[in-house]
Structure formats: C-alpha cells, structure tokens
C-alpha cells in the first residue's frame, strides 16, 4: 500500500476555506484576472507618435481590435459545444487570448481618439457600420467544427504574419500587442493546423467536411490582403503593415498544411466588395448585426450601469 502523508493536502484545504472566509476583503491582484490590460496600461496612455494622424491610428487600432473581438466572440460560441472537452478548453483559451488583444487595442483606440470612450463603450455602443473587422472574423460556424478549424487556420495564419511585421511598429501599444500576440497566435495557428491534418487525413467523411468548410471560408481570404486608405497612410508613418505583404507567407503556410492534410486549395472566386468597400470601411456581411445584437444587448439595456 502506498502511504501518502496528508500535511500538504490539509494545508491546501485550510487555505481554500480561509480564502473563502476572506471574501469580503479582496486585495488579491488576481481580481483583475483575464484583462491583460494592466500590463499594457503604461503604453496605452503614451502619446501618438510624431507625424502620425491620431484619427488614423485610432481607426487602425479598431481594425486590429475588432478582428480579434469578433473572432473571439465566434470562438466562444463553442464553449460547452465542442466535440471533446480538450477542445472546449482550447477554443475557450483561444477566445480569451484574442479578447485580451482586443481589449488593449480598443483601449488604445479610445485613448488616441480623445472622445472619452473606453474599451467597453467601443465594444458595446458602436453601431454595425462603425466596426472595422474583416468578414472572415464574423461569419458563423453553425457549430460545424470543420468551419471553426478552417476559419481559425486562415485567420491565425494571416494574423500571425501581420503581428510579426508589427513587432517594430512605431506605436508602442501595437508593438506590445504584437509582442505578446505572436506567441499566442502561433499556438492558435498550430492548433488549427493540427486539426486540419486530422480532419483532412482522417476519415472519408471528415475529409469531405473539411474540404467543404475550406471551400466555404476561402472566398473571404482576398479581403485580408486588401489595404485600406488608413493602412496605406500608416504604412508610410511606420505604424501599420501593408496586408498585401503577408500574402506570400500565408500562402506558403497554407500550401504546406493543405498538402499534408490531403486537401485541395479552393479556387472559387473571392467575395466582392460594395462600391469598393468592405469590412475595413464598415460594410459587413449580414452576420455581424446578429453578433452585435447579442453581444451588446445587456450592456445597452443598462447604459447607466457599471459592471
């Protein structure tokens, strides 16, 4: 028989009770759990870099922040719906990472625009046409795991290529988000790639489902490489990256993953714009309105509340 002395356990047990009875006095720094904003607080208030237009910088932070916020929202729909508990954990974790990036970027947008809006007023009180995310972030999975993987593979491959190039952005907040985000998004991409392999090269059924999902998501890729006017100006100012420059890197990653997964590269036509405008200009798919209707509902019901 194994003998395990219980000192440590009793110590832990006592701690758990103790921390409960101390609930009314709460000074533990972990109260702020899950924010990530604290780390970047110093940067968030730093001045707009010389020669950079504040409105452009705010708009760019919204683009990067909204991509993360809306994609995070879609991923969090999987919590308690995933095919395996490990996937519940992994998808929730990915949603949390992106939410953390979104919070810092939205806070920075609010700071530089100088209209007294914080991360929450930007997330909860903007209208659909004021969101700046790409369509790939907002389309729904309808609880099809293959769709979730296809989207995450494309989104994270692209975002990682962006973040790599933003590490030396002249905006210290964007550079800090990139610094932390590169590790996070590398993990997201690897997770999606591992599942693309399993599904693509798993059973005949999973192969078909993964190929179908990939075909459905692929038309949204072209938008990822299309620079807006704001981005063009900020590339000049050393703040932003030209998304067109990420195409080769993303293509190389996808070609490698798809080949290993025995999946074909889809060749359907890309989703078109409306008069040249897309997500970066506030023109979205029909999906975003529903996302926001749900996400913003409670916050809008209680405009006077603090949570």
């Amino acid at each position: 028989m194994n003998v395990h002395h219980t000192d440590v356990k009793e110590h832990d047990a006592a701690n758990a009770y103790q921390s409960m009875s101390e609930t009314t006095g709460h000074d533990d720094p972990r109260w702020a759990f899950g924010t990530g904003v604290e780390d970047a607080q110093a940067e968030i208030t730093s001045p707009v870099p010389d020669g950079v237009d504040a409105a452009d910088l705010a708009a760019y932070c919204l683009m990067l922040g909204d991509d993360a916020l809306i994609c995070s929202h879609r991923l969090s729909e999987w919590v308690s719906n995933a095919p395996e508990l490990e996937e519940d954990v992994a998808l929730a974790n990915t949603a949390l990472d992106l939410l953390g990036q979104a919070r810092v970027l939205l806070a920075r947008a609010g700071q530089v625009e100088g209209r007294d809006r914080d991360e929450d007023s930007l997330a909860y009180l903007r209208l659909e046409a004021q969101f700046r995310n790409v369509a790939l972030a907002e389309i729904g999975d309808d609880l099809d795991f293959a769709c979730a993987i296809a989207r995450l593979l494309l989104f994270s491959s692209w975002r990682l290529a962006l973040l790599h190039r933003l590490l030396d952005s002249r905006d210290p907040v964007i550079a800090a988000v990139a610094g932390k985000g590169v590790n996070e998004v590398t993990y997201h991409r690897d997770y999606a790639a591992r599942w693309a392999l399993r599904l693509g090269d798993g059973t005949a059924e999973s192969h078909d489902r993964m190929q179908t999902a990939l075909n459905a998501v692929w038309p949204y890729v072209e938008e990822l490489y299309r620079p807006s006017e704001v981005e063009r100006r900020l590339v000049e100012a050393g703040v932003a990256v030209d998304p067109a420059l990420t195409r080769a890197e993303v293509d190389a990653v996808l070609d490698e993953v798809l080949a290993k997964a025995t999946l074909a590269r889809p060749d359907g036509p890309p989703i078109g714009t409306i008069g040249g405008r897309g997500g970066r200009q506030g023109v979205h798919t029909e999906h975003l309105g529903h996302v926001l209707a749900e996400m913003q509902s409670l916050a809008r019901q209680h405009p006077e509340a603090t949570w």
Partner: peptide, 26 residues
C-alpha cells in the same frame, strides 16, 4: 451569458471560469 457579458472584463472572467470547469471535468 458568455455571449452577452456586459463588459469585456466580465466576459474574460466568465470565459476563463467556464474553461476551468471543463478542466475540472477532465
């Protein structure tokens, strides 16, 4: 309530908590 959490901080805390519960199950 994850999709309707009324602030981004509360949303993060809630996702993390529900994620913990999945871990407990594991």
């Amino acid at each position: 309530w994850i999709l309707r959490a009324p602030s981004l901080r509360r949303k993060a805390i809630l996702i993390a908590k529900v994620q913990d519960e999945a871990g407990h199950g594991l």
